[in-house]
Amino acid sequence: RAAQGRTHGNLGNTYYLLGNFRRAVASHEQRLLIAKEFGDRAAQRRAYCNLGNAFIFLGEFEVAAEHYKKALQLARQLKDRAVEAQACYSLGNTYTLLHDYERAIDYHLKHLIIAQDLNDRIGEGRACWSLGNAHTALGNHDQAMHFAEKHLEISKETGDRG
């Protein structure tokens, strides 16, 4: 049964990479079911994240957000700060796709704080870029400028010419 779980996960990932997002979802849902049977929270977290990603490419952003929230909850339970940051970043981007910029800012700030705690300058730069864009969308030009300047500073430091 455990091997079946891993196989569903591998199939889900393969369908995803092939661009077959409906089949990816079906496989990852099976993977999730088996992970729940075993009480395997790390595997549940992976399945929720993979499901969220697949729903993004299906254009079902609300459903993606619900899955990323489950992944975030599990990341916190597992006390894995890096994957917690990743879930926050995914939620920030998903709420941007939903044009809910206030929520997007909330999650991008959570991502920024963890990136700073973990001394992840690339993550911090991405958070600032995202926050600058969300504030621009809301017409908060002073805040947008603040984050654009931080993004520029970090990009110079990390050698990101783009």
């Binding site: 891993r6 941007t96 864009n133």
Partner: peptide, 26 residues
């Protein structure tokens, strides 16, 4: 698909480009 074409935020576009090749491996 029309929703996908409406994406204009460059940081989100970049995230999606990366996401397309990202999987949580078993």
């Amino acid at each position: 698909k029309s929703r996908m074409h409406a994406i204009q935020v460059d940081s989100v576009q970049r995230w999606m480009e990366d996401l397309r090749h990202m999987t949580e491996v078993e």
